[in-house]
Design a protein around this nucleic acid. Structure first.
Lengths: 180, 180
DNA sequence: TGCAAAACGGAGGCACCCTCCGTATTAATG
DNA sequence: CATTAATACGGAGGGTGCCTCCGTTTTGCA
């Protein structure tokens, strides 16, 4: 047939690209602290709220775009680091980027995993890390890789979580993780 | 002088008492799940939102009133139970009363502890429990009693927390808690 | 330069938070 | 009882945030 797979391909508008960057930049600032609102992001980017929603239809889409790089780093490190190093890295990342939980949390929401390809990738990376650790005898086998994620999320974001204590608590947990 | 310490003491109005009960009852229902709004509580109690706020000036005041009994139970058990039993009890309580975190969380907010006498009591109870456990050699001494609370809150309410796994994770943590 | 496609912006509907104050109820008093 | 002052009630109203919809503006392409 004559119609190729890419029919026409109009060049994307300049304002579209520019505004997407502005939004991401504003979002990065706003999400450093916790509880930033989307309207705040739009305001800071000096763009209408409608524009924000067109670029990122859901709150999650925005979080995922903002933390794409970080998630990638975690994924890569999961292939190389040991369990302890990796978990520490995650905790540290969470300490400075409060919004990041929103990029990670979908791991636990079955329905949303439709779209959250990042969740799936992280999940797979942790699963591999976990498998290695079990094999090495560092982790008792009745603790799942999801459990590891759970603990990380909890230590990083649970009520009363404190970055200054998280490291110690992680150590305690890892100690307990060894098969009896 | 003639003015006694209790000058006159007018009998409290009947509607006041009645409505307080209605509000608490409605709140108990609403807070079973998570994310109930105060307006929802007022609505369910068939009372104006103003009335709710007069009885319970802050969100926390309401939570504390709702969970006063539970907190008391926890306080009492802390004096008798071992660390493990007690922590399990807390987890179980949290699993059915999502709103309860709001009654416990103030433990970590220094400013609010002004009023939160319940927080202070829980804190003291846990401190005693913790001290006993350290003495018995069940808990390494660099882990504080606040850390124990933190872990409980995290396992019970952290993102992705799952009552079905919480027990196992608690066990792991307790294992790791022993001095090396 | 013209014009259709694409993107923008914000008004508007909804929910919730919390405060303030006019109105209604009640306990005390004669 | 009837009166009245104290007390409690209710909800309007002002603020914030969520998200959608659509009239207006901008931009790529011819």
């Amino acid at each position: 047939m004559m119609g190729e797979e890419t029919p026409k391909a109009r060049k994307p508008r300049a304002d579209q690209l520019r505004n997407r960057e502005r939004l991401l930049e504003a979002a990065r600032e706003v999400f450093r602290g916790e509880g930033g609102s989307l309207e705040e992001v739009a305001r800071r980017a000096e763009l209408g709220i409608g524009t924000l929603y067109r670029h990122f239809p859901t709150r999650e889409a925005l979080f995922q775009a903002v933390y794409a790089r970080e998630v990638e780093v975690l994924e890569r490190r999961a292939a190389e680091d040991g369990l302890k190093d990796w978990m520490q890295a995650v905790l540290q990342m969470m300490a400075t980027k409060k919004g990041m939980v929103a990029a990670l949390a979908p791991v636990f929401e079955p329905e949303s995993s439709f779209f959250s390809d990042q969740s799936l990738r992280i999940r797979a990376a942790v699963a591999a890390l976990h498998a290695r650790a079990v094999e090495e005898g560092a982790v008792r086998p009745d603790v799942t890789s999801d459990d590891l994620m759970r603990v990380l999320m909890a230590l990083g974001y649970g009520p009363g979580a404190d970055p200054a204590r998280a490291d110690l608590l992680l150590e305690v947990f890892l100690d307990g993780l060894r098969p009896r």
